[in-house]
Computed example of a mutant assay.
Amino acid sequence: MKKVIIHLISESSGQTVKYAAKSAISQFSDIKAKEYNWPLVRNKELLNEVLRKIQQKPGIVLYTISNPELRDILKKFCYKLRIPCISIVGKIVKEISTLLGIGAEDISMQNRTKLDASYFDKVNAIDYTLRHDDGQNIIGLNEADIILIGPSRTSKTPTAVYLAYNGFKTANVPYIYNSPFPEYLYQLNQRLIVGLVINPARLIEIREARMNLLQITEITDYTDLKIVQEECTQVKRMCQQKGWPVIDVSRRSIEETAAIIMKNFYDHKKYINKLEIE
């Protein structure tokens, strides 16, 4: 397996360049990438620090930087080291400019403001999501963009965190056998509520692995097949009654599940806006 070093440089949170790198690397089955993330690089001092690190560990450089001066410094530095230096957005901007026959505007400061706002929105979303993980804080669910429900160990927490990194305030509430959801949940008609279920046999495997990790040996309802089946059935039934979408995560990655949820969110938002207009 070939190894490659990739430096990801951004003036914001670095999510755009990170996702772009991940998508590109996934196309190669025989590559092991070592990533170095450099977010919030917004001045020469910070950039020079990054350049020193790159010189110590040279590799491919991917960046999203709107400041022309910083871009020029970075490109000249990489040229001297003879290493690839690729703008994630630059190629797209150039193609649009060529197609339309117009030049891109210099909006570096305006773009920076937008990036800042987006960055702090993500910070707020992550903070909210962590405070509303696993049903630990029912108060404030009306502030959520998305609420995930489902049996324990159906990837609610990692999915919620992934959504938070994309700017969505996401709460998750576990379904416990013979314990109904709080009535408050049913009053949140304007929030998108999504049920997550999984193949019961697979869920038992995940729960048993969790118990082994915690060195729990006693037999409990937690891994009883009939009860696990009933948990998933109850969540499906409840979602069907309320018109909430249900996603089977048995064969889906966190990214795939989140993508489906985000599409549902925008569809739900359009529906709510339409009702408000009428």
Rank of each mutant, 00 (worst) to 15 (best):
I5M: 13
L8M: 11
S10P: 03
I25E: 14
Q27L: 03
D30I: 09
D30C: 09
N37L: 12
W38L: 00
V41T: 00
N43P: 03
E49S: 07
K53A: 14
K53F: 10
I54N: 01
I54V: 10
V61A: 07
V61L: 10
Y63E: 08
S66C: 12
Y79V: 12
S87Y: 01
V89L: 13
K91Q: 12
V93Y: 09
G101N: 04
I107D: 07
M109G: 07
K114P: 05
Y119A: 01
Y119K: 03
V123I: 07
N124I: 02
N124K: 03
T129Y: 05
H132G: 04
D133H: 10
D134F: 07
D134H: 08
I139T: 15
I147N: 09
I149W: 08
K156E: 02
T159M: 04
L163W: 05
A164R: 05
F168P: 01
Q187L: 15
N189E: 14
Q190Y: 06
L192W: 02
L196M: 06
I198N: 11
P200M: 11
A201H: 14
L203D: 00
E205C: 02
Q234P: 00
K236D: 04
R237Q: 15
C239A: 01
D248P: 03
S253N: 10
E255K: 06
E256Q: 03
I260M: 03
I261F: 00
Y266H: 08
D267K: 09
H268M: 06
E276H: 10
E278D: 14
